[in-house]
Amino acid sequence: MAHRWGMTIDLDLCTGCQACVVACQAENNIPINTEENFQQRRAIEWIRVERYWEGEFPNVKARYIPVPCMMCENAPCEPVCPVYASYHTDQGLNFQVYNRCIGTRYCSVNCHWHVRFFNFWEPKWPDSLKQQLNPLVAVRSRGVMEKCSFCIQRIDHAEQSAQLQGRDVKDGDFTTACAQACPTRAIVFGDLNNADSEVAKTVASTKRGYQLLADLGTNPAVVYLKKIDADPLPEDSKHKYFDSSQYTRVKETVAVG
C-alpha cells in the first residue's frame, strides 16, 4: 500500500514558540527572512505560525496555529500550473519541481492556505552561514515558487535505508524537521495509511480533529486537534480581531486554538 504521509497538529499543545519555523528554515535552505522581507510581506516560511488575538483587553488570549503545506489530495494548486511544476506524487505528496517552474505564481493564487512562497529576490546568506546549507536540498533561485515538501529528503533517506535493510518504512523511522523540533510534540508526522502509526491512531480516535478549509473538498493530509479551552472567554468577546459579525464561519473552519 502506498504511503500517505500526513501530520497531526495538536493546538492544545502548541505554545507558539516557533521552533518548527526555525528548524524548517535550517533544514530546507530557506533564505534568511530580514525585517524588510517581513515588511514587504514576502517572508518565506514553509511552516508559519499564525497568531490571532481573541477577546478584549485585559481579557486577551493569543491563539497560535502552525500552518505547513496541507498536501491536499485534490490540490487546487496543481491543475493551474501550465508547466506541471506543481504535481502530485504517488505518495500523495503535492510537490514543486523547481526546474520546471517559470514563476507564473498561479499556484500561489489558487492555494487557499497561503503556503506557497515566491522567491522575489535571489536568495542570499551571510558568508558565515554558507557552509551550513543542507546538501540534500536544492537552493532555489529567484523567480520560482517553493513550498513545504514534508522534508522529502528525509522521506527518501528513510525509504532507501529501509530498502537496504529489506523492510518497509516503520513509523518513527524518521520525522520532519518541524515535528522533530517541536518541544511539546504538538506536531506529529507519519503515514496515514499505516494503521499502526501514531498519526493514524490519533486521527482515528480523536474527537477534536478537523482540517483547515475542509469545505473546499481538497482533503488535506494535515489534521488539527482543537484546543481545549479550560477557561473560555464569553462568546461575545471572542474573535474581536476577526470582525466576528462578518466572519462567523471562521470559528468553524479555522477554529483557532
Binding site: 514576502r42 514563476g103 500561489s108 515566491f118 522575489f120 529576490w121 535571489e122 529567484r142 523567480g143
Partner: peptide, 9 residues
C-alpha cells in the same frame, strides 16, 4: 527580479 515590484504574498 520580481522583487522590484510591489507584489507580495
Amino acid at each position: 527580479g520580481i522583487g522590484v515590484t510591489g507584489l507580495n504574498r
